[in-house]
Design a protein around this nucleic acid. Structure first.
Ligand SMILES: [Mn+2]
Ligand SMILES: [Mn+2]
Ligand SMILES: [Mn+2]
Ligand SMILES: [Mn+2]
Lengths: 141, 141
DNA sequence: ACTGAATTGTACCCTTGGCTACATTTGCGA
DNA sequence: TCGCAAATGTAGCCAAGGGTACAATTCAGT
């Protein structure tokens, strides 16, 4: 039913979004760990992500390459300025997503699970709509 | 802030969901093409997905391996029973997602884009909540 | 019937994000 | 101080999902 080129563009955008998903989750988690324990250790990151430590290390190496994180051998991981900014945005988006789902009637645990995936694909327009809903603004007028 | 093992489980579930994303989109698209043109050709699938044809062929090979699709060399692609069932579920979920986003005040094109990514992570609980909202049921009382 | 464009198939390359197995370094407790 | 467990790092494997380049097949139009 939908037109060809537009649909291809939409799939393309979803693909682009997908490529940043893991980075976003790592950066958010690193910020959480620093806030909670004062530092982010590779082992803890791996444990919290539910992956083995080599997997975590490889992802962290990529974050470093992208300038989101710094680390020296056998020392902890630290967010750069860019990393901290990203973490803030991602965390705000995550919280909004969870709150919204709960507000619309999704049980808490399901909301947490679904938000972990859906958050990465919500555009500004969608986040704005969610905010309006939470603020009690009636949609659609 | 969140507890360690539960968060790891949530990330794990999001990872599992991620692994089926491409299959779901292909199956949905193949069903659309069959409905529209009576057949699903590899070229058309590639064009609509916005990828090159070898990429599409490789994904189709995987669908075949998973029993969702059949095809003979130089002939079209056909959905198996399992493939048709999956297509139906995925299509219904896609439509619900788009409708819901629009209903909550997201502009149509943004709704279409975001839905293409978010749909794959919405649990039954979330879909049910979206349905209730569309039916006019007030959430949370 | 032929031929050339479109379609399909194959071969090979890359990156991401998983894993296991093993090596190295730290740093705590005895 | 020193030895051992934990943490970290490294090497090498895999599959998915992207790509290019090129080969083979179909099939429509002359
Ligand atoms: Mn996430
Ligand atoms: Mn998150
Ligand atoms: Mn999709
Ligand atoms: Mn879809």
């Amino acid at each position: 039913m939908p037109e060809e080129p537009t649909q291809a563009e939409r799939f393309g955008k979803a693909r682009s979004a997908r490529s940043g998903v893991v980075q976003e989750d790592y950066v958010e988690l690193i910020a959480d760990l620093m806030a909670a324990h004062g530092e982010a250790r590779a082992t803890d990151i791996a444990k919290r992500m539910g992956v083995t430590h080599p997997t975590a290390l490889k992802c962290i190496a990529r974050l470093k390459r992208e300038g989101l994180v710094t680390s020296r051998p056998y020392r902890g991981i630290f967010l750069t300025e860019a990393g901290q900014e990203l973490a803030q945005r991602v965390r705000a988006r995550h919280r909004l997503m969870v709150e919204f789902l709960i507000a619309i009637g999704v049980p808490e645990e399901a909301a947490e699970e679904d938000a972990e995936g859906m958050e990465h694909y919500a555009s500004e327009a969608t986040l704005a709509a969610f905010s309006r809903f939470l603020a009690g603004d009636p949609p659609r007028n």
